[in-house]
Simulated assay, not measured.
Amino acid sequence: MSEVSRGLLPGLLYGLLAFLAGAVLGPIRELVLAPVIGGLQAALIEGAVMAVALFLVARLAARRLPPHAGREPRAGMAAMGLMVVLAAEAALGAALDASGLSAERAVRSGAEQAVGLVLLGWLAVLPFRVRREG
């Protein structure tokens, strides 16, 4: 088994939990916060909460890495986590488009989209930053 592949199962868990956190926080942002305080402010609040959630999820998933995991298993975890989140986001977007629900949501500004891109970067970096505990 290659060193990178040792990070794939932790990465799968990481990506699934990260997507689930976003699936809970996204509707709160869209339906509760954005109409009251505006899209960018809502995205920034969601982003702050999501950054903490991603950190906690990364620590949890890193427990499944081999002891003293080096860069390769962590790269596998990061790559798999990112692929799972992107694939799940694409599938959700396609489902919302097919149902017509995406036509009901407000267009997100470039600044709001940038918050999401920063979070994807954070998601990719965290496996290299968290310690394997437990």
Rank of each mutant, 00 (worst) to 15 (best):
R131I: 09
L119P: 00
D97Y: 13
G110T: 07
R63V: 02
V52A: 10
A106N: 07
E3D: 14
Q41W: 13
A23K: 09
V118T: 06
F55I: 05
E133R: 09
P35L: 03
R132Q: 08
L119I: 00
M77Y: 09
P27T: 10
V4R: 10
V24A: 07
G26D: 07
A103W: 00
L44V: 14
W122H: 07
R59E: 12
L92M: 13
P27K: 10
M50W: 00
L65S: 02
S5F: 14
L86F: 11
G81N: 03
A124I: 04
G100M: 04
L123E: 06
I28H: 06
G116H: 01
G93I: 06
A90K: 11
G121E: 00
F19Q: 10
E72Y: 13
I45G: 02
V57R: 05
R59W: 09
M77R: 02
V118M: 02
R6W: 06
I28F: 13
H68K: 15
R105Y: 15
Q41D: 13
L44Y: 07
L101M: 14
G100H: 00
G15W: 02
L120R: 07
A21Y: 03
I37T: 08
R59Q: 12
V52Q: 00
G7W: 08
L25R: 05
A91M: 15
L33D: 01
M80C: 11
A48F: 09
E104R: 15
G76L: 05
L119N: 06
L96M: 14
A91T: 14
L31R: 15
I45E: 04
A98H: 10
L44C: 12
A114D: 11
A61Q: 02
G15F: 03
L56H: 04
G22V: 01
A48L: 13
R131K: 15
M83E: 09
P66L: 12
P127Q: 07
L56Y: 05
V84I: 12
L101H: 13
L44D: 05
A18S: 15
A111R: 09
L119C: 02
E46G: 09
L13W: 04
V36T: 14
Y14R: 08
V32Q: 12
G76T: 05
L96P: 05
A51L: 11
S5D: 12
G116I: 03
G22I: 04
P35C: 06
L13T: 03
L40G: 05
V24L: 11
A58Q: 01
A103C: 02
G7P: 06
P73A: 08
L33S: 02
G134A: 09
A87M: 11
I37G: 06
A61W: 00
L44R: 10
A98Y: 10
E30R: 08
A103P: 02
E30K: 03
E89L: 13
R131H: 14
L31S: 13
P27Y: 08
G81R: 01
L56P: 03
G81E: 01
L54E: 04
E30P: 02
A124C: 03
A79Q: 05
A23D: 10
V49R: 00
